[in-house]
Design a protein around this nucleic acid. Structure first.
Length: 158
DNA sequence: GCCAACGTTGGC
DNA sequence: GCCAACGTTGGC
């Protein structure tokens, strides 16, 4: 087993299931996390993620919203190719190949929970207090999660 | 550098 | 569909 000396980090990544769900990830096994156009979220992928880091896979804009499984970082960061594709909704005319603005990593499927841990369930668990995703007004599509919280959510979802 | 206007996210 | 919260843009 490979364990980075810095210690593994844990994350929560949001995806709209209508666009890309945990089932989709299960099917394709690995997916470039394209389309992130927020600097904070980009910095997490570009600067802080390492291969092997685990992430809670969260369905946003869903009924109900919640965590549905686990994914892991499966690549080094590299420029998001959609930023240079004029046909893409993620096209960014201000980004150049010499100085890419948007970076991503690939995520690989790890597991799908036997039961979803809904946003409501997350809010009702006192031990999860302080989770970034639960804080008021947090819209970030990628947030760090402490190991204690990560492990508990995985336990709740199984 | 300020800040109003505008766009987006995402729960409800 | 509504709207609160927040990020970005652009005029000055």
């Amino acid at each position: 087993m490979v364990v980075a000396s810095r210690g593994m980090k844990h994350w929560l990544i949001k995806s709209e299931p209508d666009v890309f769900s945990i089932s989709d990830l299960k099917k394709v096994k690995q997916e470039p996390w394209s389309g992130v156009r927020n600097y904070q979220a980009r910095n997490f992928m570009w600067r802080d993620m390492r291969i092997g880091d685990l992430a809670l896979f969260y369905h946003s804009n869903a009924t109900p919203p919640g965590v549905v499984g686990v994914a892991k970082v499966a690549s080094e960061p590299y420029p998001d190719p959609t930023q240079w594709d004029p046909a893409s909704e993620y096209f960014d005319e201000k980004s150049t190949e010499a100085k890419p603005r948007w970076w991503l990593v690939d995520f690989a499927f790890v597991k799908e929970f036997s039961q979803m841990v809904t946003l409501e369930a997350l809010r009702q668990e006192p031990k999860l207090e302080g989770m970034v995703v639960l804080q008021k007004g947090t819209r970030l599509s990628i947030t760090p999660v402490v190991k204690k919280h990560f492990d508990l959510v995985v336990k709740l979802g199984r």
